[in-house]
């Protein structure tokens, strides 16, 4: 009892601006995870493929963004071009590699092996062409510096832009999925791809487009983090684990689950270091959270029964 009182006592001592800062930073982390998790869950939901190369596409986006930035000197062009190029690359990989295994027995495992292999190949390709340490990104002048301060918390322009970009993408994705024919087909495909095929829709083309879209989202996240994180061949390693945890907590194939879960995980990652006596758990808390959710609700917070089994 004393320990609990002491714990809450120490929590109360943490200044308000520290809480504000951590919640804001948690929103930034959550925004990056939203972009990655959306792509991952769309691909899984429609195609049943667990894309272990998702972190590699995130890294590829960052590298292509750097290259575009170097060639054009314009961050905004890089923000558009890099995801498009990576999306095309993703679509190409789906067409040439993944499509070959769909009708095979054990296609799920073959898909995993292919993407797993790509996750090793991608960083080595980047090391070969771009070197081994990392690439410098420059924050665009328009987004450099502090936008405003609240109670001694400085809200940087760039991180606010990152949050805004992620939520804009959520809106665009919602519009795509709810208001367009392609979105209708994707949602129907997530629900029952066989039925979609029977209705005469060439589902494989939808898969290609979806895989391209998913990888483009990962690439966009890669370009967006370039000015604030190290851009190097292994940059996808840690974040892909976090993205998988987000998707599992949210529910495989659930888009709303991916968004909510990303925001929760982002906050957990940022707030835990503040908690008295619990900082040591900061390394492992998201794994504990995932384990808890799986115990209590195996299909995830918003997952549907049967999806992912």
């Amino acid at each position: 009892m004393e320990a609990i009182i002491e714990f809450f006592g120490r929590l109360a001592e943490i200044p308000a601006n520290t809480w504000i800062t951590q919640v804001y930073l948690g929103l930034v982390n959550g925004s990056v995870l939203i972009l990655l998790a959306l792509g991952l869950t769309i691909i899984f939901g429609l195609m049943g493929i667990v894309n272990f190369a998702h972190g590699t596409f995130y890294m590829t986006g960052a590298y292509l963004g750097w290259l575009t930035l170097r060639l054009t000197g314009n961050f905004w062009i890089a923000l558009i071009v890099a995801p498009i190029l990576t999306g095309l690359l993703g679509a190409g990989i789906e067409l040439t590699m993944l499509r070959r295994v769909y009708n095979k027995r054990e296609s799920v495992y073959l898909g995993i092996l292919i993407t797993f292999g790509l996750s090793f190949l991608g960083p080595d390709v980047m090391r070969f062409f771009f070197g081994k340490t990392g690439l410098p990104y420059v924050t665009p002048a328009l987004l450099d510096g502090t936008a405003f301060s609240i109670a001694a918390t400085n809200f940087s322009r760039y991180r606010l832009f990152l949050i805004g970009s992620a939520f804009s993408l959520i809106l665009l994705m919602w519009l795509l999925l709810k208001k367009t024919n392609l979105g209708l087909i994707i949602r129907a495909g997530i629900s029952n791809s066989r039925m979609v095929e029977v209705l005469g829709i060439e589902i494989r083309n939808v898969w290609t487009a979806t895989f391209g879209l998913g990888t483009a989202l990962a690439a966009l996240a890669g370009v967006l983090v370039g000015p604030i994180f190290a851009v190097q061949p292994t940059m996808g390693d840690m974040i892909i684990i976090q993205s998988f945890i987000v998707v599992i907590i949210g529910g495989l194939g659930s888009l709303i689950g991916a968004v909510i879960s990303a925001l929760i995980v982002g906050q957990v990652l940022t707030l835990f270091p503040l908690l008295p006596h619990l900082q040591q758990l900061a390394d492992v808390v998201i794994y504990l959270l995932m384990a808890f959710v799986l115990l209590v609700r195996p299909r995830g917070l918003f997952g549907e029964e049967g999806v992912g089994e």
């Binding site: 200044p15 520290t18 948690g26 270091p273 390394d283």
Partner: peptide, 19 residues
């Protein structure tokens, strides 16, 4: 102030340091 290893984002620990 200890940060988990490996870390991509130290921003969560910077306010603690500034405090």
């Amino acid at each position: 102030t200890w940060a988990p290893f490996p870390s991509t984002d130290y921003s969560s620990y910077i306010p603690k340091v500034q405090a």
